[in-house]
Design a protein around this nucleic acid. Structure first.
Lengths: 153, 153
DNA sequence: GGTGAAATGTGGTTGTT
DNA sequence: AACAACCACATTTCACC
């Protein structure tokens, strides 16, 4: 994981459809060398997958909310329960009074209410506090930092 | 935006490297037709871009936090100020006591503190409340819903 | 808006240094 | 670990329906 790998990651985040020839030229490598670098980044798990970014509004998910989930017991093994709700895009165990923070997208506020109901039904959940997003300034991918070169990989 | 388009989006989210032949076969279309569908989805903006998913730990961003930003004035045009901080991955205007919610990734808690300092320096910001993530259960892409077919596109 | 096929370009592999 | 050359296949375009 050197500066060339980070440059490759940054370029691929912007556009994963470009050829290895283009990619290699951008970082001063041949197409084959760039290909090999990217292959190893995938192998190591630094690149998890290549995917598309979908406009939420285009697929009918106009409502975005973050929900603080309070619990009365240890929630460390409740991941599958949250994963079972397709509207839940992220779930994190957090420090603080609430114990789990989830990101939810739905088509309407009525559907959001229904998701909250289903979250409430999860074992150990004692309360929810939803924060509805009025406007998204931006959402962007993680940019490979210059510092903190290698996080244990 | 019919059920075939949604199936294409779902498949491409899982793996954007598969061929149009495979893609077409999965939805009952020829390679050329699948290609044309996807081209139009890109044109309309339903597909924003093709990108890679990077493991945060691999690029040295082990610390994840959500920050509630309280303000003393209208923050509606403060998007560029937040966008100027590379560690800020998302910024949303929210309903509730705080006015902006941001998602931050850094290598260390010291760097997180520095980001909070820079957020504090943004015009109109009167306070911050950071919630540090202890463990991420999952982060996944939006799955094209069966309902809510077309959100104004 | 779909099909099938032709041509251009890329992915992925192999040899070599 | 990088380069160059190779072949198979995917992308892209086109005429036709």
């Amino acid at each position: 994981m050197d500066h060339i790998d980070r440059a490759l990651l940054a370029r691929l985040q912007q556009d994963a459809t470009q050829s290895y020839a283009t990619l290699g030229q951008a970082v001063g490598l041949s197409a084959g060398a760039a290909h090999e670098r990217v292959r190893k980044l995938r192998e190591r798990g630094a690149i998890r997958r290549t995917t598309i970014e979908v406009d939420p509004a285009a697929v009918g998910s106009a409502v975005l909310a973050y929900v603080m989930v309070e619990s009365s017991s240890w929630m460390g093994d409740s991941a599958p329960a949250f994963a079972a709700l397709p509207e839940v895009l992220e779930a994190h165990v957090i420090a603080g009074s609430a114990s789990v923070l989830v990101k939810v997208r739905t088509a309407t506020t009525e559907q959001l209410q229904d998701v909250l109901r289903r979250i409430y039904a999860i074992d150990g959940v004692s309360g929810t506090q939803a924060t509805v997003v009025l406007e998204t300034f931006f959402e962007r991918p993680l940019s490979p930092q210059e510092s903190g070169a290698d996080g244990h990989l």
